[in-house]
């Protein structure tokens, strides 16, 4: 916390006190819909969640399927077949082609 405070103070000195830059934080909230909890639970093991909305414009169902497969096979994410299906349904319904 102390480090963040210093960063904020340095930021304030550089940007003027009118606007404090926010300290970087992990605070993305994924859309409330069936499958959200499972998706959050599996994805946040390795990365923060803004990767999901940030990539939405570049993704569709086939794209998300490829991404989930990459996370499982290349990066070793512990996700079962059944879970992968639920995560795919959630991501496709909520983050395909949308930001």
């Amino acid at each position: 916390m102390r480090r963040l405070g210093i960063a904020a103070a340095v930021g304030a000195a550089l940007f003027g006190s009118a606007r404090l830059p926010a300290a970087a934080a992990e605070d993305t909230h994924l859309k409330d819909a069936p499958g959200r909890e499972l998706t959050v639970g599996r994805c946040i093991v390795c990365h923060s969640l803004e990767y999901i909305p940030a990539n939405a414009p570049a993704e569709n169902r086939a794209g998300w399927q490829k991404t989930i497969q990459k996370m499982r096979e290349r990066f070793g994410a512990p996700i079962t077949d059944e879970e992968a299906q639920q995560i795919l349904d959630y991501l496709d319904a909520n983050y395909s082609g949308k930001s």
Binding site: L4, I6, A7, A8, A23, A25, E50
Partner: peptide, 16 residues
């Protein structure tokens, strides 16, 4: 725009 410790506020593409 958000600042990592020791950095100015930069465009946060991803936190972690």
């Amino acid at each position: 725009l958000a600042a990592l410790p020791g950095k100015q506020a930069l465009i946060q593409r991803a936190f972690r």
